[in-house]
Design a protein around this nucleic acid. Structure first.
Lengths: 207, 207
DNA sequence: ACCGATTTTAACCAATTGATTAAACTTTTT
DNA sequence: AAAAAGTTTAATCAATTGGTTAAAATCGGT
């Protein structure tokens, strides 16, 4: 067994994750991965059977990483207001550390819709979470605006995720560098929190 | 000259646009395009010098298409409230007819940041538009919440665009078919309009 | 109808792609 | 230490890639 810190299999997975995230499935060659992992090209086919199989492995990993954290927050036994705030914060932290996670996943799903099957289990858990129960209860009690929970979740996710999906564009349009973007994004999520909560918990009930 | 409706050059451009939009630059082969255009592979290199040059052509076209419409709305001599509503409607119409326009552009910019130079002229026009002047004036008059205009634009764009960027995921998570998605999206933009306007034009001024 | 220019084609090229093979090297087991 | 199992390598494969070439077909002007 290779004992220099990590196993060869792990080295390949880490390298593949980095390269796939940066270049996508089509833009990545098996030699890219081998080079990044510091191994022979053939080793990749020894541990994983093909580029496609290796990709599926990485893709599932990344999808789990993305969804699991959100699911954890979404199922916490806390108030709706607090949960929305934490949900936004959690996504923001996750994306700050992995800015191209979402564009990668969305693009691969767009290019190859069959990969949706890899996410079907996780994706369906969110609409079934206690977050949605809380919303339905709050609506019944008249505490929040009457609005389908899927729309609320979409608003939360969209306002955070698109910030990172469009990061290069936003930086260009507003003339920001890396630090400037971070400041902009940090400020932005505060506005988003405020906007969404204002909309949900507004005093007078809209039609 | 080829007089069967359209010129060969136009046929190639149309085919390339469709294929690139669906498969991205890396996923597209020159033979894909030739096949879609019903021409010989070599013809593509006769009209455009290379796959890269052809792509740049298409990419610029699509970016112009995306930005020009938004710029037109953003510079209309109408009220802020009406402008926000039209901006959202316009993007929605555009994306309904071209659902993968944004994911395509964003992904290509992510994969190849040098392409940003192709958009720099257009992207910078938005922060310089009279929309932003209107916002600054409204803030000075105390008509709307005190918030940087770039944040408002980001909110508008994010809430509409991400709906389409994440279309496959949204359809899966909420169990929607094509018609279901359309209904969901149509309803969603009404909520978004309401939410953003409520936030901007709210009666009591927040800190 | 003929000529020159433009347009289109088939055949081909070198480079790169994902993947395989058989041999060499380690490690573990006996 | 010998055998067996597991790991890694260099060399190579067939297929596909973007691009080129030279010849054929088509066109407009005269």
């Amino acid at each position: 067994m290779n004992c220099l810190l990590v196993s060869t299999e792990e080295k390949i997975k880490e390298a593949a994750k980095a390269v796939f995230l940066e270049k996508g499935f089509d833009g990545t060659t098996t030699r890219d991965i081998a080079k990044a992992a510091g191994i022979n090209s053939a080793l990749m086919n020894y541990y994983f059977r093909s580029k496609e199989k290796l990709f599926q492995f990485i893709f599932n990993d990344l999808c789990s990483f993305m969804f699991q954290g959100m699911l954890d927050v979404v199922n916490q036994p806390i108030s709706l207001r607090e949960k929305i705030s934490r949900l936004i914060d959690h996504q923001f932290q996750m994306m700050m550390q992995n800015p191209n996670l979402t564009i990668f996943i969305m693009n691969e799903l767009h290019r190859n819709p069959e990969r949706l099957y890899a996410t079907v289990g996780m994706a369906k858990k969110i609409p079934e979470s206690i977050f949605h129960q809380q919303i339905d209860e709050a609506i019944a009690q008249g505490t929040i605006t009457h609005i389908n929970s899927q729309h609320i979740m979409t608003m939360i996710v969209a306002n955070i995720q698109f910030l990172f999906v469009s990061k290069p564009m936003t930086m260009l349009a507003n003339g920001l560098d890396e630090a400037g973007f971070k400041a902009f994004a940090t400020q932005h999520i505060e506005y988003v929190k405020e906007m969404i909560c204002d909309y949900l918990f507004k005093p007078e009930t809209a039609t």
